[in-house]
Design a protein around this nucleic acid. Structure first.
Length: 586
DNA sequence: CAGATGTTGTCCCT
DNA sequence: AGGGACAACATCTG
């Protein structure tokens, strides 16, 4: 009898619950066959005795992957906590995680050979993130050479993104469907698939599922580098000497200071329980724009995003937790609706993923760049001094600087805080490209996500999906109403903590006596504003207007030269655009 | 083609 | 607190 040896390769999807790839691996190891519909658990997935197969759950700490390439210390810590938690959960079930460091394209084939692997399962990467595409293709080629069968299962989103049954762009009768480019058309598309029902999450496998082919005693002492995290080559730019102290410092962080307690599936499910399941009325009536971005002690939202971005939490598990809690809410409680409801937040996530998927099908690898087909060309400047001031929270606008300080310290800020700083860097004030802002967020955010990060930067910079550039956030007044005393600023910019409330958002308007009394020395321990918002925001609106005109002219010229083929029939494939109308004079 | 709509603006008025 | 002007974007709907 040929024995089946399955490797389940964790990349994202760092969870046991609702993990179809893992269940397929278990089914193969126990019964030698795939779980036919991918919907039943491995324990129910077949008849008769097992085939004596074995399963090796594997994680490769890959310094070049999206999750580690640009990561801050905070983010590396969070990722490793997720991996450790996964190992703990597998050990509770009689298995374990085998962890290696380096390039999966070199490491995995060695392990296939060593372990006589016959099947490889992993979560499919559907957005077309360039590094993942290249890596997975190389793995597919190597697996084919090695005679290893590969099974990639979609489980990152509520529904698969691609052209598969139940997916958002599934071919219907051989006709490619139009990919929506607005949230409302996305919602309509979703409502047409199985009447908007979201498939229920799959249960986590239990100890019985792992009873055959659990641990391999021969390798118990191998692949345990997590005991020595300082050997991990992160983050980029730190010398080996620095990495030890960095790790120690991270371990000493008071995690209660952070809205994100700790990484890992266990904490993710507990946080879902505490924020959603235990609060039916809050969940049912949740409206994103009504939540506060100036909370000092704990987030006003669920702050589940870091767990979703690494796949510690399944979006379908979250969806059904919200649905169940909403059912239990009191009758008199107002039920909010997408896009502002909690379900709406998960829909945004899928919509963003679908847009990344679509952009990368049209122009591979373009999503994170200005060449993105959904991105308008705007002639941004490039000023390293301005960029550095923004990154370091030294813009002289306390609200902006406070947000950047929270980002740097906790790796998380409220969505509206992100709006403020992203608008400020791009179309609002500094006129720097959204790409450099996205790049910085990618490094700093615990919840950095390939699809969501670029989508939001396109949106805020009015380069794509959102175009009302005349709606501009003020770095002074936006939060004055919500936090008149400036408690958030006092928390994150301690240099300003003693200023009277009247001046906390605009220290440059205070006289020297007041500043001295508060210990503020403008230009010394706190900068003067690097730009005059009233002036530059007006100038920038004119620049945006011009950039849009030029965009429309280019579109019109393209139309005259004939249609450009685009495979998905998206908005980008319908060049139309009359020349902009003259403004009517009344 | 006109009119409605778009997750979360600001300022000033009553 | 609620509403309109601001100056006026793109996309979708009928």
């Amino acid at each position: 009898m040929t024995s089946v040896v399955v490797m389940h390769w964790f990349r994202k999807g760092l969870r046991l619950h609702d993990n179809p790839g893992l269940l397929q691996a278990l089914s193969l190891a126990r019964y030698g066959t795939e779980n036919d519909d991918g919907k039943r658990n491995a324990k129910n997935g077949g008849e008769g005795g097992g085939v004596g197969g074995r399963i090796y759950p594997v994680y490769v700490v890959d310094p070049n992957c999206y999750q580690l390439l640009k990561c801050s210390v905070n983010r590396a810590r969070f990722l490793l906590e997720c991996v450790k938690d996964l190992d703990n959960s597998l050990r509770e079930r009689g298995s374990r995680l085998y962890v290696a460091i380096g390039d999966p394209v070199e490491i995995l084939p060695r392990l296939w050979d060593e372990w006589k692997v016959t099947h490889l399962t992993h979560e499919a990467d559907e957005t077309g993130e360039p590094y993942a595409v290249e890596r997975d293709e190389a793995i597919r080629v190597a697996a084919s050479k090695a005679g290893v069968e590969v099974l990639a299962c979609p489980s990152e989103t509520l529904r698969p993104l691609g052209n598969v049954p139940g997916g958002y762009v599934a071919n219907v009768g051989g006709m490619a469907i139009n990919v929506p480019s607005t949230m409302s058309s996305f919602q309509q598309l979703l409502s047409r698939i199985d009447r908007g029902n979201i498939p229920p999450p799959l249960d986590a496998p239990n100890e019985i599922d792992f009873q055959e082919g659990g641990r391999d005693a021969n390798y118990d002492d191998k692949y345990l580098p997590l005991e020595h995290p300082w050997e991990i080559p992160w983050p980029r730019g730190y010398s080996r000497e620095e990495i030890g102290p960095v790790w120690n410092r991270v371990d000493c962080l008071d995690s209660s200071l952070s809205p994100i307690a700790k990484g890992g599936e266990t904490i993710a499910l507990r946080r879902l329980q505490l924020t959603v399941t235990a609060r039916p009325d809050w969940t049912a009536s949740f409206e994103k724009p009504m939540t506060s971005c100036t909370e000092v002690s704990s987030p006003s939202t669920t702050a589940l995003s870091p767990y979703l971005s690494l796949g510690c939490l399944s979006p379908r598990t979250a969806w059904h937790a919200v649905a169940d809690a909403t059912k239990r809410a009191q009758a008199k409680t107002n039920r909010s609706k997408p896009p502002v409801s909690l379900h709406g937040q998960l829909l945004w996530r899928d919509f963003n993923n679908l847009m990344a998927h679509s952009a990368n099908i049209q122009h591979p690898g373009s999503w994170g760049r200005m060449t993105n087909p959904y991105c308008r060309e705007v002639p941004w400047s490039s000023d390293p001094k301005l960029l550095l001031a923004w990154k370091g929270g030294r813009t002289g606008y306390p609200w902006i600087d406070a947000c950047m300080a929270q980002l740097r310290t906790q790796g998380w800020i409220h969505h509206l805080g992100r709006h403020s700083v992203a608008c400020f860097l791009t179309r609002g004030d500094l006129w720097q490209s959204w790409e450099v802002g996205a790049d910085h967020f990618e490094g700093q955010l615990l919840d950095a996500d390939y699809a969501l990060n670029s989508f939001n930067w396109l949106w805020l910079s009015c380069s794509g999906f959102f175009y009302q550039y005349f709606r501009c956030y003020s770095p002074v007044t936006f939060q004055k109403k919500n936090d008149p005393n400036g408690n958030y600023i006092r928390r994150w910019v301690p240099e300003l903590a003693n200023l009277p409330a009247k001046y906390i958002y605009e220290p440059w308007t205070a006289n020297v006596g007041i500043l001295n009394a508060a210990g503020v020395r403008l230009g010394a321990n706190y900068p003067r504003p690097i730009v005059d918002h009233a002036v530059v925001s007006k100038e920038n609106m004119s620049k945006m207007s011009l950039a849009y005109k030029e965009h429309n002219d280019r579109q019109a010229a393209t139309k005259n030269n004939g249609r450009k083929a685009t495979p998905l029939g998206s908005a980008a494939s319908q060049p139309k655009k009359k020349v902009k109308k003259q403004t009517k004079i009344v």
